[in-house]
Design a protein around this nucleic acid. Structure first.
Lengths: 191, 191
DNA sequence: CGAAAGTGGGCAGTATACTGCGCAACCCCT
DNA sequence: AGGGGTTGCGCAGTATACTGCCCACTTTCG
């Protein structure tokens, strides 16, 4: 008689809950049949059926084969469907009793690892060229003094005091102060 | 004789490359021995050894058990290890050719889910009392105009323009403008 | 010097992930 | 009717994830 305690498959990890739906959804989005995905990924169709039915505890390599065949990131297969409300952005979340008192949500990111808050100051004429970050990184800028010229791969964005901008930083970009007074801004680096 | 084609375990998915390092790093960060993590997670120590050695193709449930025991998000286990330097805080990361041009890293958080960037403005006399957030949430404040009085469970912090503060927001706290001009600040909400 | 804690790995046994095959059910065509 | 595409599932077989138990090695501590 065995005294091995086995995991209860009836209470699967929440991660698994989403995998089956994600794969099916992405497979349909790629306009692939189970057979086609099986051939493309190297995973047997029989296994795909089981996975989409939520019957099997997939391994990382198998899931990664599927991710590659679907041409999506691994994390896309395991993450919960995004139910955040994007409409809150730029909402006037709060106003105080004194007119002028307010709180505004500028940006909201689904971050996975890290947030960095930076204070920057650029004297007139100053230029700072940035190398591209790795995929997944993004930046949120808020200018509170002067004027910032942001150049993302040739695309220029002029940010005046009080203005805000967010962009994916896996491209070559440049900060520049074309104004005549110092530019000061807050820089949020996020992944 | 079998005609089954098996996956070549020598060219593991890139996802697997990081799992072992991540688990080991996070286990040490949680100050847990292999035995302790084994007991806490329900995964055998023998398996943890194999995983940390990169010898096994982990299943999702097993990985999720480990993630729960380490109290981190599942995706944290499969992402590329973080090679950023935590000692960079408050370092003058960059100075430009014009004196005064500078970039300073104010804060860096290991975030697991979400970041929100807020712009706030408080007129003189304005008060905003906040309910405690759930455990794990923290805030980063940067005042760029006026003066902010932050009260965290009776502990008061006076933040002048250009000053910065970070705190865990799972306690009762209050924003107040005790000055005579409007207070404006950026608020980073992070988990 | 020993004791205790942490780690790495061999080994046998069990559960299961994964495979190919074959069949049934259901479309949508002509 | 009948053929081609898609899907769900039962079955047998193989590979392997995962287990518990063992021992060996190292480090730390008294």
């Amino acid at each position: 008689m065995s005294n091995i305690v086995h995991k209860d498959s009836s209470q699967r990890a929440s991660v698994l809950q989403h995998v089956s739906q994600n794969i099916r959804r992405l497979r349909h989005a790629a306009d692939l049949s189970q057979s086609a995905l099986a051939q493309k990924s190297g995973v047997s169709r029989r296994m795909l059926v089981a996975i989409e039915a939520g019957e099997k505890n997939v391994s990382l390599t198998t899931l990664d084969l599927i991710a590659e065949a679907l041409q999506v990131a691994f994390s896309d297969l395991i993450k919960a469907p995004d139910n955040r409300d994007p409409s809150r952005i730029n909402e006037l979340a709060w106003t105080g009793v004194h007119p002028g008192s307010k709180a505004v949500l500028l940006a909201s990111s689904a971050a996975s690892r890290e947030v960095e808050l930076w204070e920057w100051r650029l004297e007139p004429g100053e230029v700072y060229p940035c190398e591209p970050d790795a995929d997944g990184w993004s930046e949120q800028l808020f200018v509170f003094e002067g004027c910032l010229t942001l150049d993302v791969e040739g695309q220029k964005h002029l940010l005046n005091s009080g203005e805000f901008f967010t962009f994916a930083s896996n491209r070559r970009y440049t900060y520049r102060n074309d104004g005549e007074v110092a530019t000061r801004f807050v820089r949020n680096v996020v992944i």
